[in-house]
Amino acid sequence: MEKQVIIAIGREFGSGGHAIAEQIAKDMGLKLYDRNILEEIAEEKSTKTEVLEKYDEKPRNYILTRRVRGYSNSMEENLAEMQFEYLKKKADTGESFVIVGRCAETILHGREGLITIFVIGDREAKIKRIEKKYELSRSEAISKMNRHDKHRKMYHNKYSKYKWGDSRNYDLCINSSRLGVEGTAKALEVYIKDRIAYSLSQID
């Protein structure tokens, strides 16, 4: 049986981190997990994906929700827990995959074969990318980027002892603006392959 490899990719909004993850998954023949996890969770819970989508990777609202005896009525928090469970189960099966976001580097921390990456980008490059991808004006793109990054940061920091994007929490942090999406993906693939080879050499 092939050795398990789990590539956890965190990303700034607009950095192209998701596209990079897609490229790596495609090139290496791995399954990509992102929002699609919600589809499987929704099926398991007999509910609709759209119902869950708006709570994905969002922080808990501390004023409008409460916790009693370990029960939280924040859907954001409950959905995060469901996704963490899902990821742990997937990892337990021995499957190799690429996972985007969802605090995977923290949730799967300590697992053999886990490679953690954080993708950042130059502010201007990110704004341009968002403008193009979502057909937004500059101000709208900035506002969207700030909002998403704020949510991701709050969401991540709730479940991880390291701050979102803190280099100590990842094996590799990379700026996608230097090589572009494709170039960054290629560079990362080289690193991933080297990591796999190194890990195999340690066994031999």
């Binding site: 819970k45 409008l64 409460r66 009693v68 029960y71 939280s72 009525n73 859907m75 409950n78 469901m82």
Partner: peptide, 24 residues
């Protein structure tokens, strides 16, 4: 409201955990 009493929090939490979010 969903946060007014403990029973509300627990009830809405059970619903949320089961995939049925109850918004305010």
């Amino acid at each position: 409201t969903p946060i007014g009493a403990s029973a509300n929090v627990v009830g809405t939490s059970v619903a949320a955990k089961s995939g049925y979010p109850i918004s305010w």
